[in-house]
Design a protein around this nucleic acid. Structure first.
Lengths: 220, 220
DNA sequence: TCTTTGTTTTAGATTTGTCTAAAAAATATT
DNA sequence: AATATTTTTTAGACAAATCTAAAACAAAGA
């Protein structure tokens, strides 16, 4: 894999994030990167000659296979550093992003793969976003704790952080386990309790304490 | 502390390393940084306006107080990352430098101070060079294991890595302890054994196995 | 001291990434 | 369909960091 400038990497990453589907426009990219449309056009020409984007004048851009690979590599670096900062250096949830923005451009492959190993091959960053593996494979969807599941979005329970018998007793009584599908219908700010829909039917209430320990996967 | 470009930081670091004493010349710096004398002159004018170096045309350069502070900060980052790479990511001794060259330019103060804490406030990097603390204080001298002590240079024993009773018995028999002054007079490649001078007088022989576990401080 | 040699600086060009302002193309409106 | 609006691209400029080639300066030798 060749080496790319910080600027090139930031463009590639931004296209990846915007390119949920369809292609990305000049103005969208300029807004995302806090830059001017003219700068975007300049950079797109360069990334086209490097075969990282498909681009024809006035027709928007899409990542090529190579561009997508590069994007996933940068995201891998970013999310591994975020995990490191939160887990090992005890940065708070909201501080990790800014620092990872810088660290993600350090390009040593060995560094990232060893960091991955050191961290125990984590699968999600501190925001619940999946971390691509060394081959660029990435899970679809996101993993968050139950209070962070958007309203009326189906999530699948995938992990429970507190494994005490008291916790497990409560869960089995409510018939919630790994793989259970659920939706959050309402959040009560008073006590952080949630009203959820279980297996497309039953409505139940869950305390804030319980909800914090339940992790679910969902598709954005 | 303001923010400086990677290039500016590399110049500052290079001046610090060359500026053992006296001032640094254009050609010296150009050689150190693998660049051209003309580029050095250009950069020196810039660093002068930023008050990081003292510089008059044709008279060489010296770091200002601020320049020295910045140099020590960069060296702190570099050596902490080296320690991290060797200690946590299990990079080998000779691989850490290149990667740390990139990491050292990530400028978050909080990152470095938290990394320092995470690593347990190490005092020496994997090459035995001292790590400046958060205030920019740095020890003079270097810490290495005995086989790496240059010939005919006085070192002071400061640490013994293997603390087994067999090891300590051998050391006390040879009257070597923390604080003992010694010099290496000869190294035998056949078995890595050393001939050393103890307390400015006695000559003794030390096996390679023993020598590897004895750490000494010395001034360069 | 004058001259030669070597070092350092200047002048001008290049590359990368950005910008502004104007032109061109695409899209929307009447 | 013709016109107005918005989007995108081009053209030309700029700052940072570098380079080459030439000029200026300093140091050393005759």
């Amino acid at each position: 894999m060749l080496n790319y400038s910080t600027s090139e990497e930031n463009y590639i990453k931004a296209i990846y994030h915007l390119q949920k589907e369809g292609s990305v426009t000049t103005n969208e990219l300029a807004a995302e990167l806090q830059t001017r449309p003219a700068s975007v056009t300049d950079m797109m020409k360069k990334l086209r000659t490097k075969k990282l984007v498909h681009y024809e004048a006035y027709k928007g851009f899409k990542l090529t296979i190579d561009g997508k690979k590069l994007a996933l590599l940068i995201i891998r670096r970013h999310r591994l550093w975020e995990f490191f900062l939160a887990e090992k250096l005890k940065f708070s949830w909201d501080e990790v992003h800014a620092v990872a923005e810088d660290l993600e451009h350090v390009s040593s492959k060995k560094l990232i793969d060893k960091l991955d190993e050191f961290l125990g091959f984590p699968r999600y960053d501190p925001h619940g976003d999946p971390i691509p593996d060394a081959n660029g494979k990435i899970e679809t969807g996101k993993q968050v704790c139950l209070p962070d599941l958007p309203l009326n979005t189906t999530g699948i329970v995938c992990y429970v952080s507190d494994q005490s018998s008291a916790m497990l007793e409560l869960l089995s009584h409510k018939k919630i386990g790994i793989g259970t599908k659920l939706e959050v219908k309402k959040k009560f700010s008073f006590d952080q309790s949630l009203e959820i829909k279980l297996r497309q039917q039953l409505a139940t209430n869950i305390s804030g304490d319980l909800a914090k320990n339940i992790f679910v996967k969902y598709d954005e």
